[in-house]
Design a protein around this nucleic acid. Structure first.
Lengths: 363, 363
DNA sequence: CTGAAAGCGCTTACAG
DNA sequence: CTGAAAGCGCTTACAG
């Protein structure tokens, strides 16, 4: 069997005594062939250890059966789970999966998209790191390449996307704290994306109910909006000094910021962390400060990470359906690849609040 | 700029008034061209929004600048970090990365390797799920495709690989418990791979010092060997009933097994978990049983996961250099792809024991 | 330094 | 049902 140096369709055809067209038909499973010739070809192919060259096929058909994903960081559990979801549906359809990290950096994202286009992927899933700067994504559209946006959206780009309703999810999470009696709730958020006038101006506008175009906001900014909304619903004022922007997807940076919050003499009675990485940082700060949850601080996180259920008491958190988000994105993309024509859809998935023991009742 | 339907080298050549060979030379950055023609070509290319078709190039050159990785589960932090390491070096060299999960299942692994071969990757990194059954990996070798094995090795397959010294690392971790006075140490290990006669026979042989061919053993079996060796070094007997085989890479299954261990009236004073997933399971069981670490049970884990430093006290663990393992594997692979000829190397990386607060002193 | 021609390994009409 | 021929979009000798 399995010979050295690759056998081509021509080799197989020669050995089987048929034309390359015929050999191609049986090996590529297209067109009709007599059962008998089919077997001759298959036999020859096996003897030569023939293996399809997907490059040649792709060049001809214009389809590679490979999709590309650009994620922020495959090491981050958020993306790791999403990628697993994508991978599951993609593998079940015999597609390949080309993955590249953007590190939430626009230049890297652009290079990633270029690389993937050169490799002729049939479609792309991207978690765009910039909601405004999107020439590279528009180019994809122009080139007719299917694209699904994950987690974030891009201003004025009408393509399929999957995400959760961040504002509502966050409002729900913060409300859990408020209804337990908390009045001073710290927020530690990544909020990397630039906002006109920075955090202060944003808060201003948010409190005045002015913030428009909320759905092209970055998730963490949206979650801040949810925080504001929960307070407004409850008729509570906000202490702007409790809202802290980390400005980076880094647990270390989040820990430093959280530490400041916890070291204050007028420490908040609870902290809300707006994503998994922030949650790690906040938890690290709480541990380092040797504070007891929920006796000394209450905590609500975002994204359900393994450790949140180990700790006792467990950590209450807003769980995004990461696996299904990935599966859904991949399914939508494959439908487009198969030619489905219909207006762009925005699938908003449901996030569930998992109530564990990290919220103290305050009277 | 950026036009619809893709422009080819021929289009660019026509617009620039040169031959396709010349256009190809500048666009593909090979061969010489006059500065002036170079600019004409570049200008035309920009105007047409030309983008290389890597498929065509790969078909000709026999190189795709893409490598394939088959990992157990990209969602598992162990693999996620390794993949990040691989990805970093691969991206820095402008290679693409095709990733597929094996779920530690031989059939899936074989299909994965086939898929990657058809897509004409330049080389493969695989974490083989079966140390004995390896026809598909030998085929790679026969086809002259560079291969680097990760974490595990395969009997009789002489190829590059990177791993840690599992026996030594595990011995070190267990010794930390022994020297703190522990005499009854439970072990929760995955040990999925089949061993002649099962766990009991393996223990028998291990205790008799009989186990040979240790380096084609699965990591968790090797780590069990380290556990035995630590006991032997200390002149301690082993209670075989404290050694528990989970038989699956599943935190849930590990938790059930750990629970049994912890529910015994003659509960071990400490537990050693042989990998990250087992660690999650054991920690889950400890939490569920509401036991206090290290007062009621001491714990030593394998792999340094985020939560191990959040808990207070922190969890002592043997940390594998996952990121560098990935980087090293990718670097070795790229060297082979570039034609480096030399005997297969086995790079053994150093694992560090991180001492935190989960080990109680017993007098 | 540049061009004409061949070819990588497939698939796709088009005949028969 | 099968074959001869063309062609996908590049790169590679080979001339000039």
């Amino acid at each position: 069997m399995a010979k050295k140096s690759k056998a081509t369709i021509a080799d197989v055809a020669r050995l089987a005594g048929v034309s390359t067209a015929t050999a191609g038909r049986v090996l590529g499973r297209y067109g009709y062939t007599r059962e008998e010739t089919r077997e001759q070809v298959l036999h020859a192919a096996r003897k030569l250890g023939y293996r399809t060259n997907a490059l040649a096929r792709g060049l001809i058909t214009g389809k590679t059966r490979t999709i590309g994903v650009v994620a922020g960081d495959i090491q981050n559990p958020f993306y790791a789970s999403i990628l697993r979801g994508i991978s599951d549906v993609v593998e079940s359809r015999d597609f390949g999966l080309l993955i590249v990290n953007s590190d939430e950096n626009l230049d890297k994202e652009i290079r990633a998209v270029n690389l993937l286009m050169e490799k002729q992927v049939d479609g792309l899933i991207v978690s765009p790191c910039d909601t405004r700067n999107s020439r590279h994504l528009r180019d994809l559209q122009a080139a007719g390449l299917p694209l699904v946006l994950l987690d974030r959206s891009v201003a004025g780009l009408e393509v399929d996307r999957v995400a959760i309703d961040n504002i509502a999810a966050s409002e729900r999470a913060v409300s859990a704290l408020i209804s337990a009696g908390h009045r001073r709730i710290g927020l530690v958020g990544e909020m990397m994306e630039y906002q006109e006038g920075g955090l202060d101006a944003f808060l201003q506008r948010g409190l005045a109910g002015e913030v428009l175009s909320t759905d092209t906001l970055y998730p963490s900014w949206q979650r801040l909006l949810g925080y504001l909304r929960a307070h407004r619903q409850a008729g509570l004022e906000i202490d702007a000094s409790l809202v802290r922007r980390v400005g980076a997807y880094s647990a270390g940076a989040a820990q430093a910021v959280a530490r400041e919050l916890l070291d204050r003499s007028d420490r908040p009675s609870a902290v809300f962390a707006t994503d998994g990485t922030m949650s790690e940082g906040v938890m690290g700060a709480i541990s380092a400060a040797d504070l007891s949850v929920p006796r000394e601080v209450s905590l609500v996180c975002f994204d359900d990470l393994e450790w949140m259920s180990f700790l006792s008491p467990g950590i209450s958190t807003m769980a995004q359906p990461r696996l299904s988000m990935g599966e859904t994105a991949a399914t939508m993309l494959l439908e487009r690849i198969e030619g489905r024509q219909e207006p762009a859809r925005a699938v908003m998935m449901r996030a569930d609040f998992i109530q564990r023991g990290s919220i103290a009742r305050i009277s």
